[in-house]
Write a protein that binds this DNA or RNA. Structure first.
Lengths: 212, 212
DNA sequence: ACCTGAACACCGTTCAAGT
DNA sequence: ACCTGAACACCGTTCAAGT
């Protein structure tokens, strides 16, 4: 979206006093609550300020516009998600690929499903923002973590690791989101999650040359 | 989003005279152009009316509110996509699973990628709508088409067809969307598309009991 | 049966004034 | 260094009046 490129989505300032760090937290908390309850369309700066217990003007000291606020909120969540993926991938270093697949899918699936209302609200809120930079930053952290993990597998080597890894993360992240949007019953969701593990394992086994 | 459930997203009336069918087309065309150019956030009813060559009041005779307009536009596109999937699946009746996977991925991938600007604009526009009904309608048409195709495979039978089919479509649709959002270079995109075929084939082969 | 466009309520954003 | 909130421009939506 060329149109939003001109407006910076970065926060206006970072808090220098304890009071303003508190203010910032209150603004974020108010935003996520309103987003979950009413969605992006009904999120008004007045309501955010009111619930956070500050005036509109204060909100505009931290964020140049409403989109920047929502952007920053999403960045926080992606940051936390990336950290969780990194932890999982490090824990799986040197394990067999079957275990890696299981752990990766488990981490991502749970991160998205455990607070489904928040995930849904954030997916929706971020959709119309120019979020390419955010996506890229997340993707490169996730890629680094998963490809280091795959390279360390105890039971396989991959000729084109880059490509195999890209396929794996695209499928896992994409399928989890699609599953999420299908609003499945828990039983079906669990089955699907298991099948996703089966599929990724079948894939990795079919493209690996056994080794090490 | 409970909040939007109260407002009907259905069009207000269907055109009874040739003049108004023309008006409706003009409104849709104006909307898609503005959505591609500026995104949902800058889409104003005034601009839609102006570009369509009608007054705002006229637009409101067809759609109860802005969201209903965008919803109807997305419905049009999902309708066309479902039809394409059905055609592909029918053409693959009785073929081997490898061919089915190739054809399904090809159809979906191309439908999304051939007019990337439109796809992106629509993905973004629909995100904050209460689109569960639309997603469900599309999902059940796609499911019907792909599961009938899989059931007719010349080289395999599936013990739990429902589950296998759900996994297949979730992965294909989810991965294509995720690939889309990664903004890959054409070479990488092509590689990924091919790997997706490899993965789905490896999966189907691993869960099939050879037969027929 | 369909179209017009001024009018109204409300939202994003600013900025002069405060502590 | 941070906060306030009235004021302004603009957008979604309506409806009395037109053809």
């Amino acid at each position: 979206m060329a149109s939003t490129a001109a407006r910076s989505l970065n926060p206006r300032k970072t808090p220098r006093q304890a009071r303003s760090a508190f203010t910032l937290d209150a603004i974020f908390e108010a935003t996520i609550q309103l987003l979950v309850a009413d969605g992006m369309h009904r999120l008004t700066t007045t309501k955010v300020a009111e619930r956070a217990g500050v005036s509109v003007g204060t909100m505009y000291q931290y964020f140049p516009h409403k989109e920047a606020l929502v952007y920053a909120l999403n960045e926080r969540y992606l940051e936390a998600l990336a950290a969780r993926i990194e932890t999982t991938c490090q824990a799986c270093q040197g394990r067999p690929i079957a275990e890696m697949v299981e752990a990766l899918i488990d981490t991502y699936w749970r991160a998205k499903m455990e607070r489904a209302d928040v995930t849904r609200a954030l997916y929706r809120s971020v959709a119309e923002l120019d979020n390419q930079a955010m996506i890229d930053a997340f993707a490169s952290r996730a890629n680094a973590a998963t490809s280091a993990m795959l390279a360390s597998a105890s039971d396989a080597r991959f000729t084109d690791l880059r490509n195999v890894n890209l396929t794996l993360v695209t499928v896992v992240f994409g399928a989890v989101r699609n599953a999420f949007e299908r609003n499945l019953r828990p039983t079906e969701a669990r089955k699907l999650r298991r099948q996703l593990v089966v599929m990724c394992r079948a894939y990795l086994e079919s493209v690996a040359r056994p080794s090490a």
